[in-house]
């Protein structure tokens, strides 16, 4: 099969075959990070710009490692919010990038749809590293790779996303990806953060965490942001922890094994208690390791996946 995409903007637009191809490709890439010389020359001469309009440590480092281990030349551009002139920046940035002849853009932006906007306007490959509340496709992929590593399959798994679903791009990418791969997906959290319209995306809504722990194979615990409390989505972090925080006590009461994922960075004592975060059933660091492999796979597949150009070259060969 051929990976015929020019951009990775979200998992909503991918087919199950394409997702499987990315996950399968990520597997051999894991080994490269285990080598003494953690580098292969496959993207030698490619220029990649990491355009981050939002602060990020984890995703940014993961992408940079992935790019460097594939021998690409990379530049990180962090655009602070205060210097973003409303409206102008994105278009001007796109034109500037074009002029610098770059091959790929990894973009994180606070506005949903910003990567798609960029993709329509430049020739380079565009990879969405998180846009607004919309999607964070590489996070969705690394979560799926981790689940597949642990369970050997995705089909039929019951995965529940817990927390601030409405504002979460991680949640949306997980929902699309897991649904396509045949998993059953649920969401759980305070109703102010879990709108009923999510049901139209084919997920089951659980109002109570206890029901989730009684049924789910795995839970993906989302980070709770302080500003949600400030905008009255729930009364306090303490109350959030009481009702939805993942604690050993709640897990013990459920009396069964539930695998625990967290996209990080964690708020210990809010959405997840420390003993759970460091416990036996979490795969949080495996997610981080898989993140690099998945991003390497995506970069590799996009770099080779230029159908128009490939056809052109094929005509000149032989």
């Amino acid at each position: 099969m051929q990976f015929n995409r020019k951009h990775l903007l979200g998992l909503e637009e991918l087919t199950a075959e394409e997702i499987r191809m990315i996950l399968d490709t990520a597997v051999p890439f894991k080994e490269i990070s285990e080598r003494q010389i953690k580098k292969v020359p496959v993207l030698r001469g490619k220029t990649i710009i990491n355009l981050f309009f939002e602060p990020s440590t984890r995703t940014r480092i993961s992408f940079e490692f992935a790019e460097k281990r594939l021998s690409a030349d990379t530049i990180h551009v962090g655009v602070s919010q205060s210097s973003v002139v409303k409206g102008e920046t994105l278009v001007d940035m796109a034109r500037n990038l074009e002029a610098m002849r770059i091959d790929m853009v990894v973009i994180r932006h606070p506005a949903s749809g910003a990567p798609a906007f960029l993709a329509e306007r430049i020739d380079s490959n565009v990879i969405n590293a998180g846009d607004g509340w919309h999607e964070h496709p590489t996070q969705g992929l690394l979560d799926m790779l981790t689940l597949r590593d642990e369970f050997g399959k995705l089909k039929g798994l019951k995965v529940v996303i817990v927390g601030d679903v409405v504002h979460s791009r991680v949640a949306r990418s997980n929902i699309w990806g897991l649904k396509k791969m045949g998993a059953k997906v649920g969401v759980c959290g305070p109703p102010t953060l879990v709108p009923r319209s999510l049901e139209a995306m084919g997920v089951e809504i659980y109002p109570r965490i206890e029901d989730v722990l009684a049924e789910a194979d795995a839970i993906n615990v989302l980070r709770i942001q302080l500003e949600r409390m400030q905008s009255n989505m729930f009364p306090s972090l303490g109350e959030y922890n009481r009702l939805y925080g993942i604690s050993t006590e709640k897990l013990e009461k459920a009396g069964r094994d539930v695998l625990i994922l967290h996209p990080g960075p964690m708020n210990r004592g809010v959405e997840i208690d420390s003993d759970v975060a460091d416990g036996d059933y979490q795969v949080i660091l495996k997610q981080v390791t898989n993140g690099v492999a998945v991003r390497m796979a995506v970069l590799f597949l996009l770099a080779g996946g230029k159908p128009a150009r490939a056809a052109e070259v094929a005509a000149t060969l032989e």
Partner: peptide, 17 residues
């Protein structure tokens, strides 16, 4: 990942272990 014809190949190569 070490091939010199990656950018010329019309078929997406499969990476194996």
């Amino acid at each position: 990942l070490y091939r010199d014809d990656l950018r010329h190949t019309p078929v997406q190569p499969i990476v194996r272990s």
